[in-house]
Design a protein around this nucleic acid. Structure first.
Length: 740
DNA sequence: CGGTAGAATATTTTT
DNA sequence: TATTCTACCG
């Protein structure tokens, strides 16, 4: 039954299930609720869940939605919905249909790091100057082109593009683009953008396949439509062309992903593409106080490009929004922590507090200060577990096992751990491979004789080949067994254990965590093959984000999208940082930064403090800054707090002195940076676990213990989780706490 | 070929 | 500052 707590517009939007629908939903207007209720309503109306496709942008959003639909309908049906990110749903389709584009089902998925590495290698091969051809820049250029459906062939046909490259002294760009695309294809691999453009290609050139999916996805819903790019928009049109039951939800004022090719015009012109569109506007903000909504409105009205709407709140006025000036970033951290400390007693949970910043590097000052006050915090972003070097190395072996032609993975591990195959040899292999249009693996497996190398090197290559052969044969084995065999063959753990410095210990810890999760994965009842494992981790990095914790949240504003906190600190409002230096070069960039600030402000329900610093420690030096131009726009509706500069400076100098002495004392024992980002596993040997006990697991949440199995030292428990069903955990490794 | 030390370089946001 | 790259020596 559809919930009765919806307001009239929300209810109407939920019930209009046929034909194109556009829901413009302001921040805090109950957007997610409308989507979940709508899905529930579809199910109630007797529509088979397999005909419903719900797309989101982040895994976090997808997971949350899944759980909410499940709670709402309380039915197993909800698990049969097609729900996920664009990338994950399309990857699933491409695994099945990719053969039509000459990919095999085991294609690898390259992440940004892989892509940049490949491009860097190509630039080197071409003997080009790294300054003129910055791999990062090239990658983002390629990515944006792909998202605009311009492949290298199309690019080569545009005189305008080629002329431009000449002027910019990047005449070889086309060659690089081509080489990169061919490298990926030859490796039977797709980068993130390929997942989209190949889906588009598939539907465009194989109309029967397109029709097949049109008939599967009879009802399509897309969240955050303002963040779609051209490919995504095009695929959505392909899929909905037949039944036209498409519902998009979004807020143009929260479009903040243009760097990824998101085009705000997709939502602005939706109505003209789908002529019969019914439009709903959700303008009431249920989240924030009147003051906060007022400030947000005052900010966003400075943007030119937007859909007309009036966000209002019927909540209480609330406190004024503060804008605070600090002497430097250290003080900003200090005072923010101090404020949090002082309001701590009035909060029932610290997770109601968020410190938001423009880029990840700003987190440091806050971390230091919070630690000093003994306030626990949770930091989002930074390196995800699967991006760590030692983990990626092992994953590279796994990827190679599944996809023997994955050239990037092979090049990554051909001499890791070092086995006497140096760069000269690798270069010979690569040259030969290129000449014969083959992958290195193919040469290793049957063409080694044709390469001019001495017998010592050849033996080493043969040894390497034999290791791979052995591993390749295992591709269907239990994942944990594969991992163990891998360790037997390459002995990476053994090697790291020989020299137990901090860095190696940290690596070992991460690797053992990987092995633990492989063990757990292998214990699943189904979908527990290596293929499933790699699939899961290539696109999902939200592993441990939904733990319920009494911790302050530190994150970038991008990461905060869709979330809500009672107290929000928006920090670093300085020109060059927020708005970022790059964005001010053009008007649309600046408007996007303004939307970003809009998103930040509208995260808060009760209280916001916006701050900036006169000086900031950046690039290893102290630099004086200029306060953000956005603050000028908020002058009349906020409460400005200036500082007495002289006093502050003295205080700040003291802070720096302190800091210095700490540094000197601890220099030797300073944690390596990689260690700081680690989430510690509590290796515990929990005794006294009993049937019926309630526990809270860091990933699966709450559940109760069904049985305990002593299993000589490897104690296992079977737990029924409220949201994830039955799981077997090894208590030695699992991270959880006993609730009662 | 492998390891290391010291130089060079980079800093937006994410799937 | 933090990370990645390069040059050099064993």
């Amino acid at each position: 039954m559809v919930s009765k707590n919806l307001n009239p517009q929300q209810l109407e939007a939920v019930k209009k299930i046929n034909g194109p629908v556009m829901i413009i939903a302001g921040p805090g207007s109950g957007k997610t609720r409308v989507i979940t209720e709508r899905i529930a309503f579809l199910l109630e109306s007797g529509i088979d869940p397999k005909h419903i496709l719900a797309l989101t942008f982040t895994n976090k959003a997808a997971n949350e939605m899944k759980q909410r639909v499940f709670k709402l309908t309380n039915s197993e049906q909800s698990f049969r919905l097609w729900m996920g990110t664009f990338h994950s749903v399309f990857a699933k389709i491409l695994r099945i249909e990719g053969y039509r584009l000459n990919y095999s089902e085991n294609f690898s998925i390259y992440d940004n790091d892989d892509s940049i590495k490949i491009i860097r290698r190509i630039v080197k091969d071409f003997n080009l100057d790294k300054d003129d051809y910055n791999p990062r820049f090239l990658y983002s250029k390629i990515s944006i082109l792909k998202n605009r459906l311009i492949d290298w062939k199309k690019y080569s046909m545009s005189n305008e593009f080629l002329e431009n490259d000449k002027i910019r002294k990047q005449e070889r760009f086309l060659d690089i683009y081509k080489q990169y695309s061919e490298f990926c294809f030859k490796s039977n691999s797709m980068d993130f953008d390929d997942l989209l453009i190949n889906t588009h290609k598939l539907f465009k050139y194989h109309t029967d396949t397109c029709e097949k999916y049109q008939n599967i996805f009879k009802y399509i819903m897309i969240d955050e439509y303002q963040d779609t790019n051209l490919v995504q928009d095009s695929i959505v049109q392909q899929l909905s062309d037949k039944h036209k039951n498409i519902c998009i939800v979004g807020d143009d004022s929260q479009s903040i992903y243009s760097f990824r090719g998101a085009n705000i015009n997709n939502i602005l012109r939706f109505k003209s593409v789908f002529k019969e569109t019914t439009e709903f506007k959700l303008e009431q903000n249920y989240r924030s106080t009147k003051n906060i909504v007022n400030v947000a409105n005052n900010l966003i009205k400075n943007n030119f490009q937007k859909i007309d709407k009036t966000i209002f709140s019927n909540n209480e006025m609330g406190e004024q929004v503060d804008i605070i000036e600090y002497y430097n970033d250290r003080e900003e951290g200090q005072k923010t922590a101090e404020t949090i400390n002082s309001i701590r007693p009035s909060l029932n949970n610290l997770n109601q507090v968020a410190i938001l910043y423009r880029n990840n590097s700003q987190s440091k000052a806050f971390e230091d200060a919070l630690r000093k006050f003994g306030i626990s915090y949770k930091i989002f972003g930074g390196l995800s577990f699967y991006q760590r070097k030692e983990i990626k190395d092992i994953i590279a072996y796994f990827r190679l096992i599944l996809n023997n032609n994955d050239e990037e993975s092979l090049l990554r591990i051909i001499n890791y751990p070092s086995r006497g195959i140096g760069s000269t040899t690798v270069q010979k292999l690569r040259d030969f491979a290129k000449k014969n249009d083959e992958t290195i693996w193919k040469i290793l497996s049957h063409n080694l004789d044709k390469i001019n190398i001495n017998s010592g090197v050849k033996n080493k290559l043969l040894e390497f080949r034999n290791i791979l052969k052995k591993l390749f044969e295992m591709h269907n084995d239990n994942v944990f067994n594969i991992a163990q065999s891998l360790e037997n063959e390459i002995g990476i753990i053994k090697k790291l254990s020989l020299d137990e410095n901090d860095e190696n210990l940290n690596k070992l810890q991460n690797i053992s965590e990987l092995f633990n999760s492989l063990k757990l994965f292998s214990l699943k009842e189904y979908n527990n093959s290596l293929k499933d494992f790699i699939n899961e981790i290539s696109l999902d990095e939200t592993k441990d984000k939904n733990e319920i914790s009494n911790k302050v949240n530190l994150m970038t504003i991008h990461q905060s999208k869709g979330l809500e906190f009672s107290h929000v600190f928006v920090t670093g409002l300085e020109n060059g940082i927020f708005p970022s230096a790059r964005s001010v070069k053009n008007k649309s960039g600046l408007e996007e930064e303004r939307r970003l600030l809009y998103v930040a402000i509208t995260r808060a329900s009760k209280k916001i403090k916006i701050s900036y610093c006169q000086n900031r420690f950046q690039f290893g030096t102290i630099q004086s800054t200029e306060k953000s131009m956005f603050l000028e726009e908020l002058k009349d509706c906020t409460n400005y707090i200036y500082k007495n500069e002289y006093l502050e400076q003295r205080a700040v100098n003291n802070i720096y002195k302190q800091k210095k002495s700490i540094n000197n004392n601890k220099r030797m024992t300073f944690m390596p940076t990689s260690l700081k980002k680690v989430k510690y596993t509590n290796y515990r040997d929990i005794r006294g676990l009993n049937k019926g006990m309630k526990i809270n697991h860091n990933i699966f949440g709450a559940g109760s213990i069904l049985s305990v199995d002593e299993n000589h030292g490897n104690e296992k428990i079977t737990v029924l989780f409220e949201n994830f069903g039955k799981k077997i955990l090894l208590t030695k490794f699992a991270k959880f706490e006993i609730i009662k």
